[in-house]
């Protein structure tokens, strides 16, 4: 275990919080310094009063995150209680999420070579998670984080659950787990099982998101998305503007977005697809994406200001609030949406 050798203390005084780099309904993420090593880290501060999940769910999430050890998955170094908050210490990913990067500088999506690298690294992360019995359940551009050297990591175990668990977490909450645009048809329908093939669908949607700058159906309200996902033909790369993309990219996306989950490929099989065989290492294709951009916190601040009006609407009934948080999400207010 490479990263296991370093120990991070459970003492809040050892961490100096710097800029805010992301926030959601119940968590804020800070860029911070771990003073003993003078090392940059991310501190996710989860407000336990605002958090609906019970402590068992939080415990499971914390344990999964601390047991993970893969270069493409964000792990937690440690976690501890500070007043009424839970601090989770994680590696700092200096360029934020893919979603955030698109909102800032690539509103119409990335070039194919960058997409190929990002997706391949994400797939490696999913491969690891599936092999260890975990379903991620929330694969989307907002959960794919980038570091300045081009490193790509999948984050957010807010809704991930272990396949070894008998309890069905999906039903343990009053709302759907995950974000409707990225959810597989079988997940949206009651009574069907949730298995790792749901991650493959979300992965396909994420591919479209990276190619277009937004997920398909993202301009519709959640209920409409739900119906469209179930009733319409699966979305794909078949618009005029998609002509620039290679045949193998289109084919790979179409393989993931098959409504019948049994016909979707496993991660293992997908990794062998020609699209990923030819993918460049991320230091070549991803690193250049943020060559001329200001630092992450400046970008976050700018987007926050732009959305200040939206945030004033916080005191609204929960249904509307949900719709807004959805649109907040789309606008990329939260660089890292950890909820």
């Amino acid at each position: 275990m490479g990263s296991g050798s370093r120990n991070y203390s459970a003492n809040p005084n050892d961490y100096r919080l710097l800029e805010e780099v992301g926030y959601g309904a119940s968590a804020t993420v800070y860029h911070a310094i771990y003073i003993p090593y003078n090392e940059e880290v991310a501190v996710k501060s989860l407000d336990l009063d605002r958090c609906n999940s019970n402590f068992d769910d939080i415990r499971k999430e914390a344990q999964i995150m601390s047991l993970i050890d893969h270069r493409n998955v964000v792990k937690s170094y440690c976690s501890f209680v500070v007043d009424r908050k839970l601090w989770v210490i994680m590696p700092f990913m200096a360029q934020g999420s893919c979603l955030h990067l698109m909102k800032t500088a690539y509103p119409d999506g990335f070039e194919e070579d960058a997409i190929g690298s990002i997706l391949k690294e994400t797939l490696k992360a999913l491969d690891y998670l599936h092999q260890h019995g975990h379903i991620h359940r929330d694969v989307k551009a907002g959960n794919i984080l980038l570091d300045s050297n081009g490193e790509v990591k999948l984050s957010d175990f807010g809704v991930s659950a272990s396949m070894f668990d008998t309890g069905d977490r999906q039903r343990s909450r009053n709302t759907f787990v995950g974000t409707p645009c990225w959810m597989a048809p079988e997940v949206l329908q009651p009574g069907t099982g949730y298995n790792f093939k749901a991650d493959i669908w979300s992965f396909g949607i994420t591919a479209l998101e990276l190619a277009h700058g937004h997920a398909p159906f993202s301009k519709y309200p959640p209920m409409k998305v739900l119906l469209m996902t179930i009733q319409n033909a699966p979305p794909g790369l078949d618009y005029d503007r998609d002509r620039k993309f290679s045949k193998s990219f289109k084919e790979m996306v179409a393989m993931c977005l098959v409504k019948d989950q049994t016909k979707r490929p496993s991660v293992d099989k997908l990794l062998k697809h020609s699209f990923f065989k030819q993918a460049k290492p991320p230091e070549l294709s991803v690193k250049k994406l943020f060559a001329d951009l200001p630092p992450l916190w400046t970008r976050v601040k700018a987007l926050q200001l732009k959305d200040a009006a939206q945030l004033a609407l916080k005191r609204m009934p929960s249904a509307e609030q949900e719709a807004i948080s959805q649109s907040e999400y789309k606008r990329g207010v939260s660089a890292w949406n950890f909820d």
Binding site: A10, N11, F55, D56, I58, R59, A62, Q63, S66, C78, S79, F80, V81, L86
Partner: peptide, 12 residues
């Protein structure tokens, strides 16, 4: 215990 994952496991 200060580490949340261990403490919450012990609590469980």
């Amino acid at each position: 215990l200060p580490n949340f994952d261990v403490a919450s496991d012990a609590f469980s």
